[in-house]
Each structure stands twice: as C-alpha cells, then as structure tokens.
C-alpha cells in the first residue's frame, strides 16, 4: 500500500511538472489494482490503441467586438476503450472542448484525429449525450432510440430497430416507458433513454457533457451506477471510448481510468490524474478503500488550489 501511494505521488508530481508526461508505470512494481495505462509518450510508439488525438487545439470565441480565448493549446490523447473524465471549474472550456470532439465547433488552431483521421464535423463514430434536450420531445422513448439507430444503421428494418430499442430500454430499466413522450418522463428517466440511445447506436466513442448535471442527487447516483455497469459490461466485450465531462469529483473517480483537470483563462489542460482502481468497481467497495481516498484527496487539493488561485487573481485585479 505504501508503495502504491508513493507511485501515486510520483505520478502526480511528474505530471504536475510536465503536462506531457503523466502516469509513468514503474515496471514490475505495479500492484494488482493498477491498470495498464501508458503515458502518451510511450503510446506514440505502439500507436495502435490511440483512439482520439487532440493536437494543440485552441479556440477563440469572437463576439461583436469581443474576443475570448476559451481554449489554448490543448493536447490530449485518449486510448481505445478508455474512460476519461474532464473536470474543472465552470467556464474552463470543458463544454467547448467536447463540442469540438462532437464536431459542432471547429478549433481556431490545431486538429483532432480519430483513428488517425482528422475529423471534419460530426460523425457516425461518435455518440453524444447532452445534459438536457438530448431527446426529441415529439418522439416516444422507443421512437427516439429507433430514430437514433436508423441514422447509424439504415440497413435495419423498422421491426429490427424497434426490437433493438426495446432491448436497450430494458437495459436501462425503462421497458415500461417505451410509448411515453419525454414530457411524461422525469429528468433522470430522460437521461436514461438518452444513454440507451447512445448505447444502442453502438458508436465506438461516447461523448457526454455533464449528462447527470440536471438530475437530483439520488437519481445521479443511480445513473452513475448504471453507466458504470453498462460500460464495464461483462468484462469480455470491447469497451467503448468515453469522454465524460463533469464537475463532480466522486463521479469522475468512480467512472474513469483517467481524469483530466482543466483550468480557465485561458482554458487548458492542467493535470492528468490516472485512476488506477480495480474494475469492476462498485461505489460501496470503492468509498471504503484507501486508494480511493488518496486519489480523491489529491484531486481535491488540486481543485481547491485552482479555486484559490482564481480568487487570488481576482483580488489582484
């Protein structure tokens, strides 16, 4: 355990020294619960499991007479099958970064590669779950999902699509809601349908921007467990690559393989924190473990350091 903590600290110290080299594996000394996460530098050589490469992107919002740099020189590599969370105080550019990955915005500089190819706009390889308004209010739960499926698999018959929709509705525990319109579903249920649609569309990549941000605390916990369970699967199936924006630290630790912490003014990647906790995870086991406490403390201090800096900055101004 002591060894682990030391590695953890080294890792953090390393990554705080240089953003480009976060988690460094210490060869044979890795305890069992540490996953095989390689630093980006090492991956460049293997090259085959890089899914998303964000290369030096910047984005400037130009309003009438105002110019605002929301992202500055952000670089990040996300591996195939990796669950990455992006955290940071509000306004640090999380949504902006995700909207670039979604293809809704084009960066002012830099580029994003998916499977080595530069992205131009939205793509069928990415499924998206928004915080709100993910569903079309004029379609029933079932229709929303089957409509999503139709876009990625037009070859399926209507019957097959509906079958698939209902299968995924059951997976998120909403078999009874198939004929309901979104207005008859609670916020949490709507997000479940949105997740079911994203999963049913079976895209390699899932992009989620605070998907649980608008639901109450209890529902939030339930949805996190659900997502965790669905993503981890039975352990054999191929995992999707997930980029998950949140400002909830516990949520990030519970779900992620790696946490990217961003900072504002200008928006940039500040820290990368690997979360080397054993999977499959469960919240109840996790909160009792010392590893969890260690990671959480580390992130907390970084997070509040960030906030403190911000306050200091404002005091100077």
């Amino acid at each position: 355990m002591i060894l682990f903590l030391r590695i953890c600290r080294n890792t953090l110290i390393n990554s705080s020294k240089s953003q480009a080299s976060p988690a460094r594996n210490e060869g044979t000394d890795i305890p069992r619960f540490i996953h095989d996460i390689r630093a980006p530098g090492e991956q460049k050589m293997t090259n085959n499991n890089k899914k998303i490469e964000i290369k030096n992107i910047s984005l400037t919002y130009k309003g009438s007479g105002t110019v605002f740099q929301a992202l500055k020189d952000v670089s990040l590599t996300i591996n195939d099958g990796e669950f990455v969370s992006i955290i940071g105080s509000s306004g640090c550019g999380k949504s902006t970064l995700l909207s670039i990955l979604e293809g809704l915005r084009t960066p002012s500089a830099g580029e994003v590669l998916i499977d080595g190819k530069k992205i131009e706009g939205t793509g069928r390889d990415r499924g998206v779950v928004f915080q709100q308004y993910a569903l079309f209010p004029w379609m029933t739960a079932e229709k929303n999902i089957s409509f999503g499926i139709k876009q990625v698999k037009p070859e399926l018959s209507k019957k097959e699509r509906l079958e698939l929709s209902n299968q995924f509705l059951s997976k998120v525990g909403l078999a009874g809601a198939r004929d309901k319109y979104p207005r008859d579903l609670s916020g949490g249920m709507q997000q479940r349908v949105a997740i079911a649609r994203a999963l049913a569309m079976d895209t390699d990549i899932l992009l989620m921007d605070e998907p649980f941000g608008a639901v109450d605390a209890k529902t939030r916990v339930i949805l996190q467990e659900l997502l965790l369970h669905l993503w981890e699967g039975d352990g054999n199936s191929r995992k999707k690559t997930v980029v998950f924006v949140t400002h909830d630290i516990d949520e990030a630790i519970l779900l992620s393989d790696r946490i990217i912490m961003m900072r504002a003014n200008p928006g940039r990647v500040y820290q990368e924190i690997p979360v080397n906790l054993e999977r499959p995870r469960s919240r109840s086991e996790l909160v009792k473990s010392r590893e969890y406490a260690a990671v959480r403390n580390e992130i907390m201090s970084l997070f509040f350091g960030d906030i403190k800096d911000q306050i200091d900055q404002e005091a100077v101004i």
């Binding site: 979604e102 293809g103 809704l104 706009g121 939205t122 793509g123 069928r124 990415r126 499924g127 998206v128 928004f130 709100q132 308004y133 993910a134 569903l135 079309f136 004029w138 409509f147 999503g148 876009q151 990625v152």
Partner: peptide, 29 residues
C-alpha cells in the same frame, strides 16, 4: 427552434431533409 435540438440533430448526423422534416418542422409546429 431550440439550438440544443439542432445540435442533437447534428450529432445524430441527420441529413438536411431529415433535419427539416423530423426536427425543424415538429419543433415549429
């Protein structure tokens, strides 16, 4: 039409016609 609905349509890769008939039209009804 709510911009978020149009964003949803975009990330679902709807064609222009599909966006008009399945998103814009019902939203403006």
């Amino acid at each position: 039409v709510d911009k978020r609905l149009l964003d949803s349509a975009k990330v679902l890769n709807l064609s222009r016609t599909s966006t008009i008939f399945h998103v814009v039209l019902p939203a403006s009804l």
